Amino acid sequence: MSRVSTVYLLTCAAIGVATGLLVIPATAFSTLTYAALPPLSALAAGAWVIGFVVAMRLLERPGAALLTGLISGLVATPLSTTGPAIVITNVMFAAFIELPFLVTLYRRWSRWLYYIGAAVLTVLYAAWTVMAADMQAFPAWVLALYVACLFISGLGAVALGILIADRLRRAGVAKLARRRPAIEVEPVAEPA
């Protein structure tokens, strides 16, 4: 199943729309609380992770998180407080969720790979936001709480995304869009 199928694209689109609708209020909440209450703002960060984990876990196909990220960004753009920049944010978050699977050349689909992607994302996002927003002006305990809330939100979102994807899979959702394991064919003996 090397081709991209319509059912795969539609599944990514459905997850992307749901993620986009989730990200719109999360962006507004994060924007409102970011400057005054960074730890509270950090709790919304998981909204960007859930859909990408669901897409990767449910489909187990290369590009599922990235395509879902692009679609969710496009859906969120008209109503997002950040405008078109939300597309870049969503694709960036999706890339970090997909990166561990790319490193394994999409041969491993272990749960811990989702957590590694989210942890790397959290570390880099925390470093970037602390520098970009000049958060060094806050007391050290606020920064520590901010980073802790980012980790709680991101890793909690991974757990929730895995739970949702596993339940959808058990219900038979996206069965045709999923990766199929390689089937070993036994050679047929030639007649003598």
Rank of each mutant, 00 (worst) to 15 (best):
L32D: 13
G69K: 08
P39H: 04
T81H: 09
T19C: 08
A26M: 12
L105T: 09
T19L: 10
I116Y: 11
A45P: 03
F96Y: 13
W48N: 03
Y114D: 05
I24H: 00
S30H: 11
W109N: 02
T89A: 12
I97R: 07
G63D: 07
A36N: 13
V23L: 08
F101M: 02
L67F: 13
A64E: 01
F29K: 07
E98V: 07
G46D: 01
S41F: 09
A85Y: 14
E98Y: 11
L79Q: 08
T81F: 14
V75N: 02
W48A: 04
I71P: 02
A35E: 12
L22G: 14
F101I: 05
A44S: 15
R61A: 02
A14H: 09
V49N: 01
A18Y: 05
A45G: 15
Y114L: 11
T82Y: 15
G117H: 06
T77G: 03
T104L: 04
L74N: 07
G83E: 01
T68K: 08
I97M: 08
I50Y: 03
W48P: 01
T33M: 15
W109L: 11
P100Q: 02
T33K: 11
A85G: 10
G63C: 09
P84H: 12
A14I: 11
F52T: 13
F52S: 14
T33N: 13
R57N: 06
G63K: 11
A13Y: 11
P62W: 12
S72N: 03
S41L: 06
A95L: 14
F101D: 00
W112Y: 14
P38I: 12
M92G: 07
P25R: 15
A65E: 02
I116W: 12
A76E: 00
A14N: 05
R61M: 00
L43K: 08
A28C: 07
A14Q: 06
L79G: 01
I116S: 07
T19P: 05
W109D: 02
P78I: 06
G83F: 06
M92K: 10
N90G: 03
T27P: 03
T19V: 05
W48I: 08
P38D: 01
G20K: 04
G69R: 13
T27E: 03
L67M: 10
G73K: 08
A76H: 03
Y34A: 15
L21H: 08
G73T: 04
V91Q: 06
T104P: 03
F93N: 14
A76P: 00
I24M: 13
L43F: 07
L37I: 11
L37K: 12
Y114V: 06
N90W: 08
R111T: 15
I88G: 08
A47V: 05
A95C: 07
F101N: 00
E60C: 14
A118Y: 04
V91F: 09
G51V: 04
V75G: 04
T68F: 04
Y114Q: 09
A65W: 05
G51Q: 00
T27N: 05
G20D: 00
L79C: 08
I15V: 15
G69E: 04
A18C: 05
A13E: 02
R108T: 13
T27I: 07
V87S: 00
G63W: 13
L70K: 10
A44V: 12
A28D: 12
I71Q: 05
